[in-house]
Amino acid sequence: MNATVRPVPYVAIANAGKVYPSSHGAVTALSDINLDIRPGEFISIVGPSGCGKSTLMKCVAGLETITGGTISVAGQPLSGPPDGMGVVFQRDVLLDWRTILDNVLLQAEFMGRPRAQYRDRAMQLLDRFGLGGFEKRHPWELSGGMRQRASICRALLCDPDLLLMDEPFGALDAMTRDDLNVELSRIWQGTNKTVLFITHSISEAVFLADRVVMMSRSPGRIVDVIDIDLPRPRSLSIRETPAFGAYTQCIRHHFAELGILQE
């Protein structure tokens, strides 16, 4: 009988740690992180403030260097930001002196690619995210939600294989956040990208993910990984189902046992 062949991880994190020096002694931000992310998988990471979620994402992005263990992307050990990566930060980091279209095209400029080659795609992304007609506006003329939509367009411009998102919707109002959750889920299903999504929201983590990674602080470590077996495509109404509630309750209960949440 042939054994089941498991896909090679697109992101492989093995025994990874991160220690920061300080005047009061070393601070361990991450300890013994082990996680394999399959190609095309949507992973949500949820945990309390200070647990190292953002630090882990920066390490996967090649923006921070781990002090122990290994991280590889697409089979290659990290030695800096990997090829085929897009990043969306909690703040939109748009340049106020550039138009929205020019901000989106900035991704192509960073990668040394001709702007003209990506203009049509930029316009298509802006239309898809409800920003059609705003391409000549400047960031200071847009709401926070519209600015974050533009930052997502920028990250998607060059069609990355790996999309890293660090609490991208955390500062948005509830209705805008819900809308972007649904749109992100649709885009992911249509493109098969590998996504690592950082959030404080248990509900958001469950709604978006194939698996939810739970992290605890002091030092930052993975305490559990929950498989989310909910049908796709997912509409917001799935949050009212018993199955969805069972997942969120399970995660909350686990955090409560760790003393992170009260039940």
Score class of each variant (00 low, 15 high):
Asn2Thr: 12
Pro7Ala: 07
Tyr10Gln: 06
Ala12Glu: 15
His24Met: 13
Ala26Gln: 14
Thr28Met: 13
Ala29Val: 03
Asp36Leu: 11
Arg38Val: 08
Gly40Asn: 05
Gly52Cys: 02
Lys53Val: 10
Lys53Pro: 01
Leu56Thr: 02
Leu56Cys: 07
Leu63Pro: 02
Thr70Leu: 09
Val73Thr: 00
Gln76Asn: 09
Gly84Asp: 04
Met85Thr: 13
Phe89Arg: 13
Asp92Gln: 12
Val93Leu: 15
Leu94Lys: 00
Leu95Ile: 13
Asp96Pro: 15
Trp97Phe: 12
Asn103Ile: 02
Asn103Cys: 11
Arg119Ala: 01
Arg119Gln: 14
Leu125Pro: 08
Pro139Asp: 03
Trp140Ile: 12
Gly144Asp: 10
Met146Val: 09
Ser151Glu: 01
Ser151Met: 04
Cys158Tyr: 04
Cys158Lys: 05
Asp159Thr: 14
Pro160Lys: 02
Leu162Val: 08
Leu164Arg: 01
Asp166Glu: 04
Met175Phe: 13
Arg177Cys: 11
Asp178Leu: 10
Leu180Val: 10
Val182Gln: 07
Val182Ala: 12
Glu183Trp: 10
Ile187Asp: 14
Trp188Phe: 07
Thr191Phe: 03
Asn192Ser: 14
Asn192Lys: 12
Ile198Tyr: 02
Ala205Asn: 07
Ala209Ile: 01
Pro219Tyr: 10
Asp224Cys: 04
Asp229Gln: 14
Pro233Tyr: 00
Phe244Asp: 00
Glu257Asp: 15
